[in-house]
Simulated scan of single mutants.
Amino acid sequence: MKNLALFDLDHTLLPIDSDHEWGEFLVRTGAVDPVEFKRRNDEFYAQYQAGTLDPVEYLEFALGTLARFPRKELDAMHAQFMAEVIEPAILPRARELLRQHLDAGDLVAIITATNRFVTAPIARALGVEHLIAAVPEEDADGNLTGKLVGVPTSGAGKVTHTHAWLAQVGTPLDGFGRSHFYSDSHNDIPLLSVVTHPVATNPNAVLATHATRLGWPLLHLFND
Rank of each mutant, 00 (worst) to 15 (best):
Q100A: 12
H101S: 03
H101W: 01
H101V: 10
H101G: 08
H101R: 00
L102K: 14
L102Q: 15
L102W: 03
D103S: 11
D103V: 02
D103R: 03
D103H: 03
D103L: 02
D103A: 03
A104Y: 03
A104D: 08
A104L: 05
A104F: 04
A104R: 05
G105M: 01
G105H: 00
G105S: 04
G105P: 05
G105V: 00
D106A: 15
D106L: 00
D106K: 07
D106P: 01
L107D: 10
L107R: 13
L107C: 04
L107S: 11
L107A: 10
L107W: 06
L107V: 08
L107G: 03
V108H: 05
V108N: 07
A109Y: 04
I110C: 09
I110H: 08
I110K: 04
I110W: 08
I110F: 09
I110T: 07
I111Q: 00
T112I: 11
T112K: 08
T112C: 06
T112Q: 08
A113Y: 12
A113N: 06
T114K: 09
T114L: 10
T114M: 13
N115G: 10
N115M: 12
N115H: 14
N115D: 15
N115L: 00
N115E: 15
N115Q: 05
R116H: 12
F117P: 05
F117M: 10
V118K: 11
V118R: 08
V118C: 13
T119S: 13
T119D: 09
A120H: 14
A120G: 01
A120Q: 14
P121C: 08
P121E: 15
P121W: 11
P121L: 06
P121H: 10
I122C: 07
I122L: 07
I122N: 05
I122R: 04
I122G: 10
A123F: 02
A123N: 03
R124D: 14
R124A: 15
R124E: 14
R124T: 11
A125W: 06
A125D: 11
A125I: 05
A125R: 14
L126A: 12
L126E: 11
L126D: 07
L126R: 08
G127V: 04
G127I: 00
V128E: 11
V128A: 04
V128S: 00
E129C: 02
E129N: 00
E129R: 05
E129S: 13
H130S: 06
H130Y: 12
H130V: 14
H130I: 12
L131A: 13
L131E: 07
L131H: 12
L131D: 07
L131Y: 13
L131V: 12
I132V: 15
I132T: 07
A133K: 01
A133L: 13
A134R: 07
A134G: 09
A134E: 13
A134C: 15
A134P: 08
V135C: 13
V135I: 15
V135Q: 15
V135E: 15
P136R: 03
P136H: 13
P136A: 14
E137F: 08
E137W: 11
E137G: 13
E137D: 09
E138G: 04
E138W: 02
D139T: 00
D139I: 02
D139F: 01
D139V: 00
A140S: 14
A140Q: 14
A140Y: 11
D141T: 12
D141A: 15
G142D: 12
G142E: 00
G142I: 04
G142F: 02
G142V: 04
G142W: 01
N143P: 10
N143F: 07
